[in-house]
Write a protein that binds this DNA or RNA. Structure first.
Length: 304
RNA sequence: CGCGGGAUAGAGCAGUUGGCAGCUCGCCAGGCCCAUAACCUGGAGGUCGCCGGUUCGAGUCCGGCUCCCGCAA
């Protein structure tokens, strides 16, 4: 059995951990994840998803604030490390600790969309195809040689959430066999074509603010890409209006970007280049999500 | 005790200085029409989140409680 140390934090990492734990070829000797963080309206300390999963399998778990703490803690004789959505960059000394280094699962077809938000980036950019990449970790972010990939189409109905779940499943299915192949020497790494690399940035809630000068198509893709996180929103009467779903509507150049109007009884907004989108589902501050038509009903500030 | 919004008909909202509880949509019945999510007429549907207080009288004022949500982290 191969002795593995698993680094991961988010929901995306959980199926990967489970796949390795349930595979008799591997022995997960330790799990490293981010420390518990305050979450929710009253800032309750909450463990990350991977910690919960590790507890279900009673795996030794470490939550170092600084990776240097791991120096003397990790079990010896590690064959390989696996990193999936851990949230920190691993320093060189750590990468060299396991005999065969570290393997990473990334939610894009590298070298496209290196960085922390590949799923969002692929949908927002209008990519029709994406996938997961299993690669060897090297010193640069998402830069190492590729062991395997698996692809999927991006549907018009895909959201950040649906694609996230699909890719997580694909990665978890792909990882065990590729990892075994790598460790037994059957699967060799292929250097990335670095000239084709593209990059995505880390997202915050601020990034969810809709730029109405973009076209309806761009905005529609953003709303889907950022659902459920970080979400999309706009300002209305000094308050934030979450926008959960939009539909592209017929062009109408008489409305300028950001201009609100009513189309077939539905709230609609002008976008860039004469395009328009209908707000299908919205959520005002302090309210539950509601349809655009419902939102219009009791609302006097929409059309002036 | 991090900041803030909210709870009124099935849904979304209004309710002014306390004085018979309203609007839009939906629903039911009927009408108009080639037809309709359009239009017209009529109708059903509410312990105003819960408990207590002030008052001749509380959706409205006071105190407490429960639940929902936005921000922040």
């Amino acid at each position: 059995m191969h002795r593995i140390v698993f680094f991961g934090t988010s929901d995306f990492a959980v199926p990967h951990l489970e796949a390795l734990v349930q595979d008799s070829r591997f022995h997960v000797v330790a799990v490293v994840t981010q420390p518990d963080k305050p979450v929710g309206r009253h800032a309750e300390l909450t463990p990350p998803p991977v910690k919960r999963a590790a507890e279900r399998y009673t795996l030794p778990t470490f939550q170092p604030e600084k990776l240097s703490e791991l120096n003397s803690i990790l079990p010896p004789d590690l064959d390989v490390g696996v990193v999936v959505s851990y949230g920190k960059i691993l320093p060189p000394w750590l990468l060299e600790l396991p005999a065969r280094g570290f393997v990473n699962v990334h939610a894009s077809l590298l070298p496209r969309w290196r960085g922390p938000s590949p799923i969002h980036a692929a949908i927002a950019a209008g990519d029709t195809h994406t996938g997961v990449t299993v690669m060897k970790l090297d010193e640069a972010m998402d830069h190492g040689p590729i062991l395997a990939t698996d692809g999927t189409s991006i549907l018009d109905t895909d959201t950040g959430g649906s694609l996230h779940d699909r890719l997580a499943g694909m990665g978890a299915t792909l990882l065990p066999n590729i990892l075994d192949g790598y460790l037994s020497g059957k699967t060799g790494p292929t250097t990335q074509d670095h000239t084709k690399a593209t990059y995505c940035k880390i997202l915050t809630r601020e990034n969810g603010k809709i730029d109405w000068f973009k076209t309806a198509h761009e905005i529609e893709r953003q709303v889907r890409a950022y659902d459920p996180w970080p979400g999309s929103w706009t300002e209305l009467s000094g308050k934030r209006l979450k926008i959960l779903a939009v539909k592209i509507r017929p062009n109408n150049a008489s409305f300028s970007p950001g201009q609100r109007f009513v189309w077939k009884k539905r709230p609609t907004v002008g976008c860039g280049q004469g395009t328009t989108v209908e707000l299908v589902t919205v959520q005002p501050e302090g309210k539950k999500p509601m349809s655009g038509e419902e939102f219009i009903r009791g609302n006097k500030t929409w059309s002036e």
